[in-house]
Amino acid sequence: MNSTAHNVQEPSGPAQEQTVLEMQGVSKLIKGKAIVDNLSFKIHKGEIVGLLGPNGAGKTTTIRMMTGLIRMSGGDVLIHGHSIRKEFKQAISQIGAIIENPEFYPHMTGYDNLLQYLRMSDGAGVSRIKEVVELVGLQEAMNKKVRAYSLGMRQRLGIAQALLHSPKLLILDEPTNGLDPAGIREMRDYMRRIAEVEGIAILISSHMLAEIEQICHRAVVIQNGKLVTVTQLTEVPEARSEVALTIRVDKLEAARTVAGALQGVKVTGADEAHFELHVQLPDGAVPELVAALSEAKVGIYRITENRQSLEEDFLKWTGGNRIA
């Protein structure tokens, strides 16, 4: 498993395999119905992992069990080897989290709110507030009451709050909920910076697939509380042998004949209205195909890759848009 192959800092040796979070067969039963069913997965240091699932799949319940907000019916969650059930304080001190919307005491300033959380954590001094506030760029708003904050500002204060005690794992539940496109982009930049600057693992729960696809290294897909699949998102190009291409040409019939004659190339369809040919072929055979087409005097306007998006995968895994 080369889960950290695309990690920017390329941590060396054993650090790569250091497990920050381990879910061990976690279950939650409510009135005999399994909301989360025997869920197991791991998150390593420096990884950004997405927790994906349709509405009602059990994402929020899972996250609330990781943070000890709700009790699990079975299994255990280990944070840096500490059980959240038996060694709550040691385990939770490694976690920073925003669960659903970040809510603060509205009649207090941003600074006073952060002080509240600082007084509840061990080891961090007042200077740490300045650091995290600078990281999220809220310097100007620190002396304003939280009541006057926009949702975007509250999200940033939420991140500041989560990073205050220098956790090893950051858990974000629907972090872009209710944010405008600029806010979403800003959020993404923060998360990247946090992963790089602070070097911590991040777990993001979302049903916004494009979001997950853009920033996560891996995605854990759950449905009806069960693990569906764990998938690598940033794939290494060499690893994929087959590619699907759409080629727009001037002479469709000629192109079809040329492509069909080449070994390894499979013509999967043609769109006569748009002069497009759909082919499937090994990655290494692409130059060959282009050369052959040119030789046959077939003009090429465009070549586009038909990548199966995460969305299609997701619908395939979760069986359409059924709500559990």
Binding site: T67, G68, K89, I99, E100, N101, Y105, M120, D122, Q161
Partner: peptide, 14 residues
């Protein structure tokens, strides 16, 4: 009701 209970209970305090 404010929702601040979540941030309150995920601290290293029982």
């Amino acid at each position: 009701s404010q929702g601040t209970i979540k941030f309150l209970l995920i601290r290293a305090r029982s």
